[in-house]
Design a protein around this nucleic acid. Sequence first.
DNA 1: TTTTTATATGATAATTATTATCCATTGATA
DNA 2: TATCAATGGATAATAATTATCATATAAAAA
Lengths: 157, 157
Amino acid sequence: MGKDMKQTTRRFQQMYEKLKKFHYKLTPQRIAILKILSERFDHPRPEDIYDDLQQQLPTTSPATVYKTLTVLKKLKEVLEIQYSHESNRYDAVNPFPHPHIFCTACQKITDLDFSEYDILQKKIALQTGYHVETVCLEVAGVCPDCQKISESFPGSR
Amino acid sequence: MGKDMKQTTRRFQQMYEKLKKFHYKLTPQRIAILKILSERFDHPRPEDIYDDLQQQLPTTSPATVYKTLTVLKKLKEVLEIQYSHESNRYDAVNPFPHPHIFCTACQKITDLDFSEYDILQKKIALQTGYHVETVCLEVAGVCPDCQKISESFPGSR
DNA sequence: TTTTTATATGATAATTATTATCCATTGATA
DNA sequence: TATCAATGGATAATAATTATCATATAAAAA
Ligand SMILES: [Mn+2]
Ligand SMILES: [Mn+2]
Ligand SMILES: [Zn+2]
Ligand SMILES: [Zn+2]
């Protein structure tokens, strides 16, 4: 069993227990969604989750996916990444606020490992006098892999 | 003439000249929208701009507001601040990318004067190897004024 | 185990911001 | 002033999400 597998199982169990603790019903639909969420490291959209779900429970409705995400959001078991007039993306693997970086070439969303993110909140609070609640840092650019490709095919974009 | 007035006039002229330079027609609708945009420091939504516009040109359509904003966006004369499933907000007073802070109590959006924003891009590029194109930093919290109010009325929120 | 019941599901409609379409109008140029 | 491509306005289309509501069901109670 790989390390990802262990992490996946643990996240599934954490979410399962959280739902139980707060007396939400553990329906087959919800259990399937939890499993999908715990296995997807790529910040899926509701429709991505719905597509996966169709494999197992073909009668499920998209509304159920949205409703389950709403519940998990309330319980802070999934992080919602909002995009204007595109579908939201969700991260249940790491549900705590963290920054992301989006590659405009290959469209991949990756957790941004930016060491200073955690102290940003304090710095901003100090400089502005605000009581800071959320710090949303979303970066876009071209990933190293895609830079290599565009070097090999100059002028292709 | 106050300082804001001078700044307002200058921004109007800058936008006006930019449109002219790129051979966009200077219609009464566009001129009115430029004036509104140059005067509003509060990051208005398209519907806010439309409401103001109704005072002067009551037959204007919301589509015209959207189309004009699209043009100004392309010319980098307005900054679009995207909100998921809420209206976008626009800043033509300072059209260059900059961070904002939103007060969750009074709903005010203010330019975040965060001195380290400009170097964020380089730091992230260095740490990740990405060619960074945009850095979106949007903070939410309670502004100093609203903190005072909630001290005077403890437990009111 | 059966009964009960509050909650969840699924089908569908509603909502909302934005974009697309299309024809009549008009600003800019000659 | 005549010309014409660009623009405006009315309206339809789009797309993600949320609301509604009758039916089904997980879980607690009997
Ligand atoms: Mn993430
Ligand atoms: Mn601003
Ligand atoms: Zn890439
Ligand atoms: Zn405030």
